[in-house]
Design a protein around this nucleic acid. Structure first.
Lengths: 196, 196
DNA sequence: TTAATGTTTGACAATTTTGTTAAGCAAATG
DNA sequence: CATTTGCTTAACAAAATTGTCAAACATTAA
């Protein structure tokens, strides 16, 4: 099923996500989005009422996507090591496709001072933190505040893709080389986080 | 010398940096900046001609600040270990004060497709990468592409501060606790990067 | 076919943001 | 004291962006 076949509403939303999350153009106007989607700008208002509501919907769905990564990876009876690999694999794939998704969320939450869902913690994050703690007690990974562990993990996965333009400039890395480096990171991050 | 005493031009620039880099309000208008600085908006145009020129100046100075961190830390005859500590200390302090500085640079470079300074590499980054490589050859740190090492380092330093709102939400961390965690990271990052 | 329903469009209005101008003001220089 | 100079302001103009509306169009059901 192509992007076009999903109907105009979905097309507009997907195009907005592409512009925000993949291209990192956070200042895109409704006109920019309509143009990229190849539709009349009025349709943005027809389907979403206002620019703000489109943004809110996109933001909410992006938050959901983030939430689900952890619940997807950390359910089931696999070992911690296997779950961790699954998490790294899924998150990296998504972040390669949409490097600026979190950047969008951060700037949007800074824009208006919206507090975001609290129940997330209990359902998704808390079990994850508990498993980390258990793994530390076993001595499998270095003891530290599990929240530091989690921050380290997500930092190593997200930041290099978020800052690719800066990194390319500072380290003189070509686009081609950068892709190669990013592909190596799944394994590399696992080894840093979970030393053999 | 207080912020006010530096003259209006500097005051406007400093206020803009505070809004962009400290508060992460990337969509701030010239009116927002003028209000925060307590001056008439016309002064923004008087001193900087246009919004775009103010942004370019702020961007350029932020790039310079980033460049200097590495040259500052990596000149002199200290050991690699000492230089690394110096770098972590300086970068973390700056990032705690201005967590969104890089976020601003990333979105601005995404906005217009500006290529950024190449000579940076030779003067600052290349010697740093060479020292990393030497340290790996000595066996002091785990062997990998030195560029990965550098990415890891900056990821661990920058990302948790950049994403503090998301992290606080997902892990239910209070503002107070977050500050405490961030203060611990200087040491923690050094230990992750440079295992004893 | 006709009516009903949902979709798309262009023209227009409103709002927000940026940029310009001329005049006022204050310090300091002759 | 008069003048120059740089700084500041309010009022206005221009541009960019968002939002509205009625009419045209297409699709489906009666």
């Amino acid at each position: 099923m192509s992007v076009k076949d999903k109907g105009t509403e979905q097309l507009i939303k997907d195009t907005a996500k592409k512009i925000f999350f993949a291209e990192g153009k956070l200042h895109a106007t409704t006109q920019d989005i309509a143009d990229a989607a190849g539709v009349n700008r009025t349709l943005v208002h027809y389907y979403f009422r206002s620019r703000k509501l489109l943004f809110e919907q996109v933001t909410e769905e992006a938050m959901d996507e983030l939430r689900h990564i952890m619940s997807d990876a950390f359910t089931g009876k696999q070992t911690f090591q296997e779950k961790l690999k699954k998490l790294i694999n899924a998150f990296m794939d998504q972040t390669i496709a949409f490097p600026y998704r979190e950047l969008f969320l951060i700037t949007e939450t800074n824009r208006y001072d919206t507090e975001h869902a609290d129940e997330v913690h209990d359902t998704h994050t808390k079990p994850f933190l508990a498993e980390i703690k258990a793994e530390m007690d076993k001595g499998a990974i270095k003891a530290m505040d599990p929240r530091h562990f989690m921050m380290n993990l997500f930092s190593l996965m997200a930041y290099p893709l978020l800052s690719s333009k800066l990194s390319k400039g500072f380290m003189k890395i070509t686009d081609h080389e950068y892709v190669k480096l990013m592909k190596q990171r799944k394994q590399l991050i696992f080894e840093m986080i979970y030393p053999q």
